[in-house]
Each structure stands twice: as structure tokens, then as C-alpha cells.
Design a binder for these strands. Structure first.
Lengths: 243, 243
DNA sequence: TATGGTTGTCTATATCAATAGACATTTAAA
DNA sequence: TTTAAATGTCTATTGATATAGACAACCATA
């Protein structure tokens, strides 16, 4: 964890330090002791006052990542970072595999609407064609990992909402509707600061980073079946592309 | 640009607003006028004081993204976002294609060293095997886009440093050393806040986001020839994965 | 039980971030 | 030339951020 923090940048020192410690925990530093270094050690490392480090640790405690115990130290409670393989066979649940004990997909909202220009372009439909929109949040071991808005051609996947709500999985919902297999055709990845909607949906703290994917799935004949914009909590995931 | 800014989060309002406006510019809002809305309009939109908006715009002006003209408004100077296709044939220069007039690859540092555990694992070498390390910064139209640290098996690519310095391109350097073609085998993508080294290498402002890729290239026989850790300025790039 | 190392709490002070208001300066258009 | 709209500059005030120091409370261990 070399490198000093930046002053007078509009980002408070305690937040920069919290981000760095969160990252270090996630990368497996401190695994030997299961504890964060003492506050005074961190303060010296970062070149700040001990109280500033305490603010950072308080924020991490608020997130449930660490827990301070008077007289002993600050214990690490959680450190996972899920890996998402991206390939022709990209799927959320099987991709996570054994990295989490339990995964859930929650339906936050839905609707049937006319395809916007963007959605129509990705799904290769005429603008204005009816599409079904699902707003979902996916969780691993109860912790939100991503929030997604997905669009499906309404004519072909009329029962998508019910199927998803029952199965909590896009793959299984497709199967119920007669599509046994599909292919990830395109994935675009960008990053941005979390917006207000992300903070609540993904249980993030402001200033956090979200990884944004725009993805299109096709059936085996190459016909688009789904377009999704998904927002991931960047400190909980990484993507792996295997060619 | 809906959604309010967050208070008391360790991220100053002016920085949140600067990030949002930068994003909006990059997304093509304001394209009709070529100008950012008036300060008072933005202040109302974000629910803050005009002076706070001015701080945000001053930061963007410092980055060269906007330029304020008294009496007229705040003009947009720059809005590009380069797209990087990631596939078996991922290459920096040809991937950028016609998105920039001129690309350069600058060698910042280099060395020959024993492979660390991580490097050895990716290059499938015994730990401690000699590898060549190159520190490079790649620019498009004079603007830094990414900084990379790359490792190559020293036994096979002894002249890598000279070849890169001459050609300013990994692909062309490989060609000079007798490797006419190679394949992108694996790419891992994560995101983080910019560190001190990023700020200077990529000419970023603190609080900015970097997209980090860890990539491994092989020759046509599947033998690893390069492992790279590359840090991209997130507001200047997006990745596209075509399967 | 005594000690060293750790987190918890309190006071005080200086600087940064944000708001508020007033007015100057510049530009474009009426 | 006048006016409206926009950015530029200044003063003042409040709250958040960061530093500094002192000491209390707690834990593990010698």
C-alpha cells in the first residue's frame, strides 16, 4: 500500500484512506493476521493524523468490512471480490459458481414499452417495437452485486416477468419460455462514480465506483434476445475475459 | 442528469458535480449548443450554490475539458472517449484505428528481473526466471490514454526494449523479434480510484477512476509471450468485448 | 498483577468546503 | 445604444475536514 494520499482534491483524506484499505483487504493483504494494522501504523503509512485514520475505519465499519475491538485491534469481517468470466457462455449464476453459497435475483420493477433508439439498435428491432423491461438486482450471499435493466422483444418473450420472478434467473426464465441456450454476443464495459440510484440499489457509499456493462445476448441463430445495462459495485467484482 | 449530489460523504460537492458534468459531456449531452448550461441553471439542477458549480467548472477547465468565456458561457473543448475492442486480436494501435489521428507509445522505464510469483504464474514460467519489464505510456493525439507495465520472457525476447523504443508498438516490436502474430488469451478488468502514480502518468486529477486490465498474450502455439498490467483513464475509454 | 499495546473519548485549533449576497465585466441581441 | 444574460470577483458566515495532544478503557501476556 505504497503511495501517499492526495490533498485538496475534493476527496476527503478519510475517504481516500478507506478506499485504499478496502482495496488492500480485498486483495488479500492482512490475511495472515485477519486484522488491519494498528491505527498509529496506518496513520504513519499514509502520513496523516490518527484521527483521520479512525474516520476511515469508522466508514469501513459502517460498511461491515471491519470491526474494531478495544484493546485488541480492528478485525476484518469480509473481503470477497467476485470474479465474473465473460465469454460466449456468460451467465450470472453459473459464472459465480462456488464463489458464493447463495445467489438471488430480485425483480424491482418491470414494464412493457416501445423500444427506444438505443434498445432498438441493440436488439435489431424497428424503433418503437414493443419490448419488455425488467429492473433487477442480483445478490450473492445477501450482498447486492449488480443492478440491471434488461430489455426483451415482447412478441417472443411475453411471459418474461413471471418467469423471472419464479426462477430468479434469466437463464432459467429463458428455458421456461422455450429458449434452452443463448450466446453473449457483445459486452461493453465502462466505469463511473456511483449515482444516487446505485447507492441504494447496491448499498454503496457515495464516491464508490460502479462498473457498467452493456451486453447483448442472441439465440443460437444470432437473433438478439436480450439487451442489458448492468451496474456492478466495482469493489466487489472483477471481470475475466477468456478468448 | 437527474439525481441529486450526496452530502457528507467525504467527496466534495464540487468534485461530484465535476464528475457528473464530465460524464454528461462525454455522453454527448450539450452537443447541440457545444456549451455547458449556465452556472445558475446547473446550480438549480444540482441543488447547490452557484459558487459550488463554479468550483466544479474550474476543475474541468483545469483538465482542459471546458473553457469559460465571460458574457457568453462555458464552451466544451473536448469530449472524446476511445473505444477499445477486446478480442483474440486485441492490439492497442489498430484497435484505436481511426478514432485518433496519431498514437504514440512512450517507454518510461525498463529492466531485467527475476519473475515475481504473479508474473511467473501468468507467463507460465518457473518463479525467478529472468523476464524483461517495460513501463510504457500510450497516447492518442498527444493525450495519455493508458500506462502499462509489461513482462516478457527474457530468453526469447532479449531485444524487446530496443525494438519497442524504435517502433513505439508492442505488435511491431514482436514482429522485429520474429513473432509475426499473437493472441490475446486472457483479460481481467477491474476499476479503482487513481493513485498518485496514475495522476502524473495519465495526467489525471485526484478522485478520477482508472480501469485496470491484466492481460496475457500467447503466440499461435499458446505459449505466453507477454503479461501486462494496464491502467486506463476511465473517462477517456470504454472496452468492447465481441465474442 | 503489572505492563505494553491497542482502541475510545475529549478538547482545541486551523483549513477546506459550501452557502449567501452584492456588484462588476463582458457578450450578444433587441 | 440599451438591455438581458452570462461569467468574474469580492466579503462574510457556517459546517465539515484534519491536526494535535492528553488520557481513559480494554486486552493479551509476561
Amino acid at each position: 500500500m505504497a503511495g501517499q494520499v492526495q490533498r485538496q482534491t475534493g476527496v476527503a483524506l478519510w475517504r481516500q484512506i478507506a478506499d485504499r484499505i478496502r482495496q488492500a483487504i480485498s486483495a488479500g493483504a492482512y490475511d495472515e493476521t485477519g486484522m488491519v494494522p494498528p491505527e498509529m501504523t496506518l496513520a504513519t503509512q499514509f502520513g496523516v493524523n490518527r484521527h483521520t485514520v479512525r474516520s476511515a475505519l469508522a466508514a469501513l465499519a459502517q460498511e461491515g468490512i471491519v470491526r474494531a475491538v478495544q484493546g485488541r485491534g480492528t478485525l476484518i469481517e469480509r473481503k470477497e471480490r467476485l470474479n465474473f468470466p465473460i465469454s460466449k457462455r456468460t451467465r450470472f449464476n453459473s459464472g459465480i459458481g462456488e464463489q458464493a453459497r447463495e445467489t438471488r435475483g430480485l425483480l424491482l420493477g418491470h414494464g412493457e414499452e416501445a423500444a427506444s433508439d438505443e434498445v432498438a439498435r441493440w436488439l435489431k428491432l424497428a424503433p418503437g417495437t414493443k419490448v419488455i423491461r425488467l429492473e433487477t438486482v442480483r445478490k450473492a450471499d445477501g450482498r447486492p452485486v449488480s443492478s440491471a435493466t434488461s430489455w426483451f422483444p415482447a412478441a417472443r418473450f411475453a411471459g418474461m416477468r413471471d418467469a423471472y420472478e419464479t426462477t430468479e434467473s434469466i437463464t432459467r426464465a429463458f428455458a421456461e419460455l422455450g429458449l434452452s441456450d443463448y450466446i453473449r454476443a457483445t459486452t461493453e464495459i465502462t466505469a463511473a462514480h456511483a449515482e444516487a440510484a446505485d447507492l441504494s440499489a447496491l448499498e454503496l457509499t457515495p464516491g464508490a465506483i460502479v462498473l457498467i456493462t452493456k451486453a447483448m445476448n442472441t439465440d443460437l441463430d444470432g437473433v438478439p434476445v436480450q439487451y442489458s445495462v448492468t451496474r456492478f459495485a466495482a469493489d466487489r467484482v472483477q471481470f475475466t475475459i477468456e478468448n
